[in-house]
Computed example of a mutant assay.
Amino acid sequence: MQIERIAQWLQRMPRSGITQLECTLGQATLRVLLPSAAVPSARATTTVCANGFGIFHPLHPLQPQLGARIGRPVQAGEALGFIEVCGILTALPAPAAGTVTALCAAAGQSVQYGQALVQLESGA
């Protein structure tokens, strides 16, 4: 067995969730056990899309503590931004608890129904 091949497997172990690897060649056996902390936890990424058309506001114009900021943790149902139509703001609710990882539209940008606006990451 080539050492390069074993090195590739060892690099892939933490990313794939594999915690044990055993290779036998003749009478020699190599056994690798990773502690569970070495395996990253599963994460789910959700893209939240516009629930209508209008002007996207990641933060509420009068209450800037409401809305999406990168790195901000949110609970299910919290506003991730607002879509303005004829001066009326409609909240864009978070479908699940998570952390805002990206804004896909700029503040003041015209958006259409179904357009990606915010990305959330949640631990599984």
Rank of each mutant, 00 (worst) to 15 (best):
residue 74 V to Y: 03
residue 2 Q to S: 14
residue 105 A to T: 00
residue 36 S to C: 00
residue 110 S to P: 11
residue 34 L to Y: 11
residue 23 C to E: 11
residue 108 G to K: 05
residue 41 S to E: 15
residue 99 T to L: 05
residue 111 V to Q: 04
residue 62 L to D: 14
residue 106 A to T: 10
residue 67 G to Y: 00
residue 82 F to R: 02
residue 87 G to C: 09
residue 34 L to W: 15
residue 91 A to S: 14
residue 11 Q to N: 12
residue 7 A to I: 08
residue 1 M to Q: 12
residue 44 A to W: 09
residue 11 Q to Y: 06
residue 19 T to S: 13
residue 60 H to R: 05
residue 60 H to C: 07
residue 30 L to P: 07
residue 81 G to D: 00
residue 74 V to C: 08
residue 59 L to A: 09
residue 70 I to V: 15
residue 26 G to I: 04
residue 53 F to P: 11
residue 55 I to M: 10
residue 93 P to A: 03
residue 39 V to Y: 07
residue 101 T to M: 03
residue 71 G to F: 09
residue 112 Q to E: 13
residue 122 S to K: 07
residue 45 T to S: 10
residue 37 A to H: 10
residue 103 L to D: 07
residue 22 E to K: 15
residue 41 S to D: 14
residue 37 A to W: 10
residue 29 T to E: 08
residue 26 G to Y: 07
residue 62 L to Y: 03
residue 71 G to E: 08
residue 54 G to P: 02
residue 11 Q to K: 12
residue 99 T to C: 09
residue 37 A to I: 07
residue 86 C to E: 13
residue 11 Q to H: 05
residue 107 A to K: 02
residue 57 H to G: 00
residue 37 A to Q: 11
residue 88 I to D: 14
residue 39 V to F: 06
residue 109 Q to Y: 04
residue 111 V to M: 07
residue 25 L to E: 12
residue 13 M to T: 05
residue 123 G to S: 13
residue 37 A to E: 14
residue 97 A to P: 08
residue 11 Q to P: 01
residue 3 I to F: 05
residue 11 Q to S: 12
residue 102 A to L: 02
residue 124 A to L: 11
residue 112 Q to F: 09
residue 119 Q to W: 02
